[in-house]
Design a protein around this nucleic acid. Structure first.
Lengths: 151, 151
DNA sequence: GATGAAATAAATCCAGA
DNA sequence: TCTGGATTTATTTCATC
């Protein structure tokens, strides 16, 4: 299931991770290959699911989304999957992970204000089957990398 | 400091968040505007820092990066900033946040194997000034959104 | 697999509304 | 701020190595 990346693939991905709009011609020059080869490689990486897509990176802070919180939840095991499905639909919840330890799941929540955060936390805390929550409010973002470092 | 997005900006960003390679001509048609307008808008969004860049979305799992863990750390306040600087340099640590609560910082770690994770956890746990750590190993990724939902 | 040239399509620039 | 047309640049295809 794991796709083996050769050196050329890695170099192409590295360039695209820095700027996905880099023209193929420029990539070709950088790697001393033809434009067609870059084209074929990228096409293959897409077909194999390595490249899931191209997205624009919007600065959340610039558009007012500057409140982040991580929420740990514990739940009634019988209702857990149902709870996850519901939380999945919340657009304010950007990440959901099952985790080991005292709590069941870890959520990353991003909103525009503390009021909005309070609303979401209430919604989650009051869901049927949620037995306890623990919220960690983010005071400062020190690092938030969105690309993979495979150097 | 917050940049005000009008309806056109929002629509453009929404399209680019889904596929950053959508041709301007297509965006223009979708929004009933000229290609030049789209061009000017995107340029302005870049200049104002709303658009931080265009990235390729690489599936970590496809290339073998399928171990994620969240690590909470407590530290000697006097050495805390120094510790953060050091951890910042770890390529395996993708996110670092100062958080409220019992712990000082929350880290998101992504590696290729449990062995690698153990190594990183050891490194962090043994850093001078780190007084305690709590690791949550990710068993399942339920949601991991990289774009912002401003609908 | 990789290439180069040809065809198609897109991005960019600019003068004018 | 937006537009339409002209120019430049990029992507895609395909026959060939």
């Amino acid at each position: 299931m794991t796709y083996f990346l050769d050196d050329i693939d890695k170099k192409i991905l590295k360039i695209l991770q820095e700027d996905a709009r880099t023209p193929f011609s420029k990539i070709a020059k950088m790697l001393n290959l033809s434009e067609s080869t870059i084209h074929i490689r990228i096409k293959r990486l897409k077909e194999n699911g390595v490249i899931k897509g191209f997205y624009v990176d919007v600065d959340p802070e610039k558009i007012g989304y500057n409140v982040i919180a991580f929420v740990l939840i514990k739940a009634d095991p019988k209702k857990y999957e149902q709870i996850l499905k519901k939380i999945y639909e919340f657009k304010e919840v950007y990440e959901i992970f099952d985790v080991t330890g005292e709590y069941y799941a870890l959520l990353k929540v991003r909103v525009k204000s503390r009021e909005e955060l309070a609303t979401i936390l209430d919604k989650i805390g009051n869901m049927e089957g949620v037995t306890s929550t623990y919220t960690m409010f983010v005071l400062r973002t020190i690092k938030e990398m969105k690309t993979i470092d495979f150097s």
